[in-house]
């Protein structure tokens, strides 16, 4: 193996260019980011910021790729075709933030009930109902 080198960079992408960018990062011999560690998201208010954490077993480098989508209509291409590890991560983001992953082969709720929560718990505008708030469920 090469020398141990742990660095984390952050690069911004766009929803339109995301798939091409990630494929380049995965396949280009200069990068070789062959592992997807995590898919998550951050609520920035007007936008939802998708966060993809990559890791290279060849160089032992980490890289964070971000892409922002509109909070009112959050849609982005699924990266599960590049890394199967995205399958569960994208379903979790779908349950928690309401992001629609276009092209996901199995978009059933992962953590939410089969018919969904009816809300998105990790969005900033979601308030916990408190102990009397579930009565109508």
């Amino acid at each position: 193996m090469n020398q141990v080198m742990i660095e984390t960079g952050v690069v911004e992408s766009t929803p339109a260019a995301l798939l091409a960018d990630l494929q380049e990062l995965r396949d280009n011999a200069a990068y070789r980011f062959d592992r997807l560690l995590d898919v998550t998201a951050v609520d920035r208010g007007e936008t939802l910021e998708l966060v993809y954490r990559l890791h290279s077993l060849q160089t032992n480098c980490d890289l964070v790729v971000k892409a922002s989508v509109d909070s009112a209509k959050p849609e982005i291409a699924s990266v599960s075709g590049l890394w199967e590890a995205a399958l569960f991560g994208e379903r979790e983001v779908q349950d928690m933030f309401g992001v629609v992953f276009i092209g996901h082969p199995d978009p059933r709720p992962l953590l939410a009930p089969e018919d969904g929560f009816g809300f998105f718990p990790l969005r900033k505008n979601y308030k916990l109902p408190g102990r009397s708030g579930q009565a109508g469920r």
Binding site: L111, F117, F119, P121, Y126, L128, G130, R131, Q134, R137
Partner: peptide, 17 residues
């Protein structure tokens, strides 16, 4: 009755529901 997770959005507040 939900126990320590009674305020959570994901926990049933008692199986008698």
């Amino acid at each position: 009755g939900g126990g320590p997770f009674v305020d959570s959005y994901s926990v049933v507040q008692g199986v008698d529901k």
